[in-house]
Design a protein around this nucleic acid. Sequence first.
DNA 1: GTCTATAGAGGGATAGAC
DNA 2: GTCTATCCCTCTATAGAC
Lengths: 213, 213
Amino acid sequence: MEQEKETQHQNSEERLKEAARIEFMRKGYAAAKIRDIAKAADTNLALLNYYFRSKENLFQIVMAENVDKLFENILPVLNDSNTSLEVKLVLISKLYTKMLLDEPSLPIFVLNEIQTNPEGFGNQIRFNQNVMNSHYITQLAETDKDTDPIHHLITYLGMILFPFVMKPVMQATGAILPEKFTNMIKQREKLAPVWMMTLLNLPGLPSSNSVDV
Amino acid sequence: MEQEKETQHQNSEERLKEAARIEFMRKGYAAAKIRDIAKAADTNLALLNYYFRSKENLFQIVMAENVDKLFENILPVLNDSNTSLEVKLVLISKLYTKMLLDEPSLPIFVLNEIQTNPEGFGNQIRFNQNVMNSHYITQLAETDKDTDPIHHLITYLGMILFPFVMKPVMQATGAILPEKFTNMIKQREKLAPVWMMTLLNLPGLPSSNSVDV
DNA sequence: GTCTATAGAGGGATAGAC
DNA sequence: GTCTATCCCTCTATAGAC
């Protein structure tokens, strides 16, 4: 019987992992200090090393979960051969917008760590395989036979992700107030699929102005 | 008479600054070591501190120049009230593509440093003012009266910049070979303006299929 | 499992000779 | 201006008591 497990805090190991996730994300690997992580988790250095052996190892664990997060929910959508391209576009926008509003600094963090240390990501190849061989890619290629589907993949992902990548710039320079940002994102969640359908010369969803089904 | 100034290397100060730029960009601020910077510049720690007083100060100098680089060439284009929106779109694509092919890791580096330390960039506000008050923004607003021009600003910048942001991911996962990347970018340089004109419902450039002047 | 204390290495900065 | 040697602090990791 492990009844009162959720009272107050989880166990030390989970608290440490969560604190690490936050600290690494905020400062980056090199600038993050395991002393601060331990303190944020309300424990100490020795315990952190007891559970995770080293800073590097703790980082790898946290990082793998972060990368998973960026793909796990989206892959089933990309590979569903029962949905139209239009529906996929809408779902992709919804899923990423939801996730990124919850974790706005995840993209830059992940991208930067890969750029500064690409060797650590050879094992993530499977994700790529799953994306590049997906039903979504096939549909893009069939819809626009003149253009490499990777262009549309990147373009659409950029429509959704790029505002989050630019968020720090927009806010540091005062281009947009913090509260307005969420508002802008909510608008884009609807606009991005429409834009993409325009680029692909698709009629749009049945619910708006198309003909059948 | 300072005739033979360009022989072999520049002076130590310039070599140090250049080495710093490379090292900071590759590793990020925290992971970069001034010992390595000094070594790469073929000199030593003491001289680096003699010229720049501290790692932090050297970084600020290099960083300011990097941010400038991202704006200096583009602002005149955005503010030229004698060019059509179509022409601006083409020029923006050309300028950024050229610059980024030369400095592919600049975007993530700058974005990450801003995300991890936003306070250091309050002084860059002037750039933002210049962009948000530009002729380009006015033209976007007039062309699509229903949409906040910041959406189109972001969308178009994303079309051009986002592939560079994703470059490390695409290459680490093997989605695209290093040589193919340049090829893909060259294609996008032409495609991006066309896509954007489609989104804005513009007829296109005179040279392609439009009517007058 | 959890803690205190400390070993050990690395990196930023400076002193001082030339 | 340029160098060698060194100071000193910070951070990771571990030893060892409880």
